[in-house]
Design a protein around this nucleic acid. Structure first.
Length: 563
RNA sequence: UGGGGCGUCGUCUAACGGCAGGACCCAGGAUUUUGGAUCCUGGUGUGAAGGUUCGAGUCCUUCCGCCCCAGCCA
């Protein structure tokens, strides 16, 4: 953990989980802190999981405790090792190290023995009802359920049937093992919940050893207990499950882990449900799980997010029980703040327009010194080639400049960053009247960009040398959804209607400083006046591809918007 | 109409009966060789009504609103 992170965590007020842990330590309920992060290996991690990770690992770390990584692999029909690896990679990327790597499937044997124990105690029974019949007898939110006809089966018969379930004598779905609790309980989870279902399915770790698999409720708490987890932190929707969590632990007389629930993370302009993310991948709304528009950790990483920015964001959002939707602008703010400090500056021209300096000789080339990062003196300087023909941003020139436009226009003088003050004296146009080049003169005494007589030059433009610049592809990303709430759709429409058609704009023929011709995936830069960019894995030698991670704050854009 | 939760600026989050504070966001200004960064100023909030108290966001009562639960998913 970095020093800044330590300080930030120490400065901010304790959240309700930290308070609960402190109380537990003080009261002697626990004498240490052990947590776990329990992903199901059935998909990629997103920033919502990152919140859980930061909480699970963070609580342990702050209290000198440990956090296990435990794969909640109780459903072989939807899980795969492919996900195990990506999950581990994402956790490490965030900077966390788990203590033990565990799997719920490690405990299948123990779970089976405990199930037998509950049968012997008369607390569990084999039920021959099908899924539909179980549902039928469960009752509703307002009506109590009715007992299964198999509820009072003799212990010996239950034992025999359960052994035969395990032995594979029965087809999928034909029987279940259920806890015998209370069919009239107001909490539906307590109406004889299913502990085991028959699934003749190959498990990614246990192979064909088992054909009965424990449900979440039967596996999770017992896994916590086996790992001596003191604080089992999960999201709000499991609040209803806590009585069952505690019932199993009490009936078994095993280590009493404590479950505490917090609100999951939601973000504006995106979605966090695994189901919806999967849909977008399958419908090819995005290019994959690591599409830079996805809120997955692999997507954010490819977009150019730093672990520090994500962690800072999570820290600022806080931990509470209120259902909430964090503003994606805060996430973006955290990235800008981090990258402003550390990203090397560079010049890139996205939509090039030729600028010719008439009074600068054809064969002359100067290597001008440019500061790498004005926020960090130790970042040093670099040389940037300058010559007669340059490329500037098309939108930095206007034939008829609107009010408050400080950029280049006929007769106007601007500063070329790190270079010279230039004045536009004429333009070249094609047969359609489009400007194809602007012609300028320069002030030789302004080398470096300083006005020799101290005259005020308001506009500063970025540029590249037409002769030296490297070609690049630049991908401009924006929010995936146009509306803050993707589900805020009109009658008869759904989230598809809210997809932002401009979430990706690919620009080819961009030009960057020659120093950026060769980049490695993940290299980050601030392109002056444009934003923060990150080299994409699609980059090839001499042909870099940059993703815009986040734009710079743009007060000119606001002026334009205001009209 | 059952059970479990949750209501504090637009958003997120503090307050542990004692001046409702911070961040993001928004607006304005200063400054600037990035219309960036930085700095300054300003903006709006305790869901409602009663009650207890010298004093209530906090305690009590009632009401209102929102979220979750009827998988052999997690």
């Amino acid at each position: 953990m970095s020093d800044t992170e330590t300080t930030a965590a120490a400065d901010r007020p304790r959240n309700f989980i930290e308070e609960a842990i402190a109380e537990d330590l003080e009261s002697g309920r626990f004498d240490r802190v052990q947590t776990r992060f329990p992903p199901e290996p059935n998909g990629y991690l997103h920033i919502g999981h990152a919140k859980a990770i930061a909480i699970d690992f963070g609580m342990a770390r702050r209290h000198g405790g440990k956090c296990n990584l435990r794969f909640d692999d109780t459903n072989p029909t939807r899980e795969d090792v492919e996900y195990v690896d990506s999950i581990k990679q994402d956790i490490e990327w965030l900077g966390f190290r788990w203590d033990r790597e565990c799997y719920a499937s490690d405990y299948y044997g123990q779970l089976y023995d405990w199930a037998v124990e509950l049968i012997r105690k008369g607390r569990a029974y084999v039920c021959d009802l099908g899924a539909d019949e179980v549902r039928e007898l469960r009752g509703t939110l307002t009506e109590p359920g009715r007992p299964s006809p198999f509820r009072d089966r003799a212990v010996e018969e239950n034992l025999d049937l359960f052994a035969r379930m395990k032995a594979g004598e029965f087809p999928d779905g034909s029987r279940t093992l259920r806890a015998k609790i209370d069919m009239a309980h107001p909490n539906l989870n307590m109406r004889d919940p299913v502990m085991y279902r028959i699934l003749h399915s190959r498990h990614h770790r246990t192979g064909d050893e088992w054909c009965i698999y424990p449900t979440y409720d039967w596996a999770h708490g017992q896994s916590d207990s086996l790992e001596r987890v003191t604080h089992s932190l999960c999201s709000l929707e499991f609040e209803d499950h806590r009585p069952l969590y505690e019932w199993y632990i009490r009936e078994l007389g095993i280590f009493p882990s404590r479950q505490i629930e917090f609100a999951r993370l939601n973000l504006t302009h995106t979605v966090m449900s695994k189901r919806r993310l999967r849909e977008m991948v399958e419908e090819k709304v995005v290019h994959g799980w690591d599409d830079p528009r996805m809120p997955t950790l692999s997507g954010l990483r490819r977009l150019g997010y730093t672990p520090a920015a994500v962690l800072d964001f999570l820290d600022r959002v806080g931990v509470a029980k209120t259902d909430s939707v964090a503003d994606i602008a805060l996430l973006e703010h955290c990235l800008r703040e981090d990258l402003n400090r550390r990203a090397q500056r560079a010049m890139a021209v996205l939509r090039p327009l030729r600028l010719v300096i008439d009074d600068y000789s054809e064969d002359r080339v100067e290597e001008l010194e440019a500061v790498n990062n004005p926020e960090d003196g130790s970042a040093g300087t670099r040389k940037v080639p300058f010559c007669r023909e340059l490329l500037i941003e098309r939108e930095d020139f206007a034939l008829e400049p609107p009010p408050k436009f400080f950029r280049l226009a006929p007769g106007r003088e601007v500063r070329l960053k790190h270079a010279y003050l230039v004045t536009c004296i004429s333009v070249e146009r094609d047969s359609d009247g489009n400007v194809t080049a602007v012609r300028c003169t320069h002030d030789p005494a302004s080398r470096g960009g300083e006005a020799p007589d101290g005259r005020r030059v308001k506009g500063t433009l970025h540029w590249v040398s037409a002769r030296h610049a490297a070609e690049a592809e630049v991908r401009l990303y924006d929010h995936l959804f146009a509306k803050p709430d993707p589900d805020d759709a009109a009658e008869g429409e759904d989230w598809h209607a809210n997809l932002n058609p401009a979430s990706l704009e690919t620009l080819s023929g961009c030009r960057v400083e020659p120093g950026l011709a060769e980049v490695s995936t993940g290299d980050r830069f601030q392109f002056l006046r444009l934003g923060y960019f990150c080299a994409d894995p699609d980059s090839r030698p001499g042909r870099p591809v940059f993703n815009r991670s986040v734009a710079l704050k743009d007060s000119w854009a606001k002026v334009v918007r205001a009209g």
